[in-house]
Amino acid sequence: MIWNLGSINIDKFYEVPHLPAAGETLAAVSYGFGLGGKGANMSVAAARGAARVSHIGAVGPEGAWTIERLLEYGVDTPHIAQLDVPTGHANIVIEQGGENNIVLFQGANIELSEAIIGAALTEASPRDFLLMQNETNGQEYAATTAQALGLRVVYAAAPFEAAAIEQLLGRIDLLVLNEVEATQLETATGQRVDALGIPDVVVTLGAKGCRWLSNTGEKRFDAYPAEAVDTTGAGDTFTGYLVAGLDRGMNMDAAIDLALKAGALMVARRGTADVIPDLKEIQDHFGS
């Protein structure tokens, strides 16, 4: 079982000829909206990876449809609070090559109480997973509670903030971050990421695959070929599938391989949570 303390956003997408420069006004070629937020993306990915996942989060009055959408995608939703503050949202600008920039409004995602988080985790069992990202409040409380209950803590270090990771050192079992974030963390701490006392660290490398660092050494994995049209949500898809694989009893090698396959399909699609591939699509595309 995966308990995901994560953000829920309403994503708004604007396709543009190129990413705008400072002071530039640029007409969008197309517009769309859908379910997003790193937390929601990872919950959907984990559910589509055949894991049972319960989302811990919050939305505002206009965000009730996001809860319904998560439920449709197989995510348990009893621990999503409806608060009297706006739902988080993200304005996502995507250029034709698939690169993007994002303006994020946190809203209800940072209004979670310890009571909401604690009520969810009291239902967890030892060896369950607690998955978190840096888009909600309550991370230290959740990690401390999860550790006391015997859960395995996975932290996806985005949006990156070195202090948020340092605050959780000693409580993280698996850290997932990208190459730039890994460099920033090493600069901030003065230590290599594999010297921080975290049992497993996965560093994603985009089109170059990923690195897995553990107390047994380092192993590299190549990415699967893909024609990227939109990289939004690809890292979240990777992480959700990685934790789903581990929760289903896969070893790290197999879980990483599954996550890379999911990421390769995801970058070929436009959108976020609504277009994350399911396990059957991955099996059909790559073979069982």
Rank of each mutant, 00 (worst) to 15 (best):
G263C: 05
T239Y: 01
A255Y: 14
G190E: 09
L104H: 02
V59H: 13
P86C: 09
T145L: 12
M42L: 10
I80D: 04
L169T: 08
C210Y: 03
V275N: 03
L174I: 15
N134M: 04
G39L: 12
D278E: 11
K261Q: 15
T239M: 02
G197L: 02
I282Y: 00
G245L: 00
E24P: 05
I2V: 09
T144W: 10
N100Q: 00
S30T: 08
L258F: 15
E218M: 10
N215F: 08
N109W: 10
T237I: 03
Y224S: 01
G63P: 03
V44L: 09
F129W: 15
A254C: 11
A143R: 15
A64N: 06
K208P: 02
M266V: 04
V203K: 11
G88D: 08
N178A: 06
G217V: 14
I2F: 06
A262R: 02
N91L: 13
L175W: 01
Y14T: 06
E123Y: 07
I94T: 07
L149E: 00
V203E: 11
F286I: 09
G170H: 04
K219A: 09
M42Y: 06
T136L: 03
A164K: 15
E114F: 07
E166G: 04
L258V: 04
I2P: 07
A146D: 06
P159G: 11
V201A: 10
S113I: 07
E95S: 00
A226M: 08
I67L: 14
G235E: 00
V85S: 14
D173E: 03
E135T: 10
V229D: 01
T216M: 09
E140Q: 06
G150S: 01
Q167Y: 01
K38L: 13
H18L: 09
K219S: 12
L149Q: 07
R248K: 12
H18G: 12
H18I: 09
F238E: 01
V75W: 06
A157T: 06
A146W: 12
V85M: 12
P159L: 09
I92A: 00
D278W: 05
I80V: 13
H18V: 14
K208T: 03
